[in-house]
Structures are given as C-alpha cells and as structure tokens.
Simulated scan of single mutants.
Amino acid sequence: MLTFCRNPGRVLSREQLIEQAFGGLIASVERSVDVHISRIRQKIEPDPKDRSMIKTVRLGGYLFTPAVEQI
C-alpha cells in the first residue's frame, strides 16, 4: 500500500511491486503480487465488485487511482 501511495497515478508492474516490497532480497513469484493486491482490495474498496481504487492495467500492472496528499 505504501508503494501505491508513493506513486499515485502511476502504473506499477508486478516486478516493480516485488522490488519495492521485498527489496530484491527474496525470490518471489509474480502471482503472489496478485494475491496481495486482492487482499488490499478487500480491505479498501467500498464495493469489491467495482475496483475503483486499484485498477488492473492489462499487460502493464496496477494503478492506484485516489489522490494522495504529500506531507
């Protein structure tokens, strides 16, 4: 979630999310990112059927759409 908040409005690939989450220290399976995204969506999406906060970009990755205020 922190990676999305640091990169609002930017499409992040699975590889980028793995690098940010694990720092390249462990070998992770790309599909595990999908599981983590699904769990985040369950917690933050107002309507689980309408994925409005984290969008899937085909062949690109994921896009966090809400506005994020920098502090």
Rank of each mutant, 00 (worst) to 15 (best):
H36V: 13
L12A: 06
L63F: 04
A67M: 13
M53V: 10
E15R: 14
L17V: 08
S13F: 07
I37D: 08
F64P: 03
L59E: 06
P66H: 07
S28L: 02
S38C: 07
P48Y: 13
A67P: 05
F64V: 05
R31L: 05
P46D: 05
L59Q: 09
K49Q: 15
F64N: 04
A27P: 01
L2V: 12
E30W: 08
D47G: 07
T3E: 13
D34R: 10
M1C: 05
Y62T: 09
F4H: 04
Y62K: 04
N7S: 12
R58I: 14
I44W: 02
G9W: 00
A27D: 11
A21R: 11
G9N: 09
F64G: 00
R10N: 10
T3I: 10
K55H: 07
R14D: 02
P46H: 09
S32R: 13
K55V: 15
Q42R: 15
S13C: 02
R39W: 13
I44E: 03
Q70T: 11
S28Y: 08
S52Q: 14
R10T: 08
D47F: 03
C5M: 12
I54D: 02
Q42V: 01
I44T: 03
R39V: 09
F64T: 02
C5G: 00
Q42A: 09
I54K: 04
G23E: 14
L25S: 12
E30V: 05
S38P: 00
V11E: 10
R39L: 15
L12V: 09
P8R: 06
E30T: 02
D47S: 13
S13N: 01
G60R: 08
L63R: 08
D50T: 11
G60C: 07
Q16S: 06
H36R: 12
D47A: 11
A27M: 03
P66G: 02
S52H: 08
R14M: 03
M53T: 12
R41P: 12
S28H: 04
V29Q: 05
R51Q: 15
V35Y: 07
K49M: 04
G60E: 06
N7I: 04
K55M: 13
R39K: 15
G24F: 15
R58Q: 13
I18D: 00
Q42Y: 05
R31M: 06
D47M: 05
R31D: 11
G24L: 02
N7F: 10
R10I: 10
A67N: 11
R51E: 15
S32N: 14
L25W: 11
A21Q: 10
I26K: 09
I54M: 11
R58F: 06
E19K: 06
S52T: 15
F64H: 03
E45R: 11
K43D: 01
M53F: 02
S32P: 00
A21D: 11
V11S: 01
H36P: 00
I40N: 01
I37T: 01
N7G: 03
S13L: 03
V33Y: 00
I18R: 02
Y62R: 05
Q70D: 06
G61F: 07
I18W: 00
I44F: 03
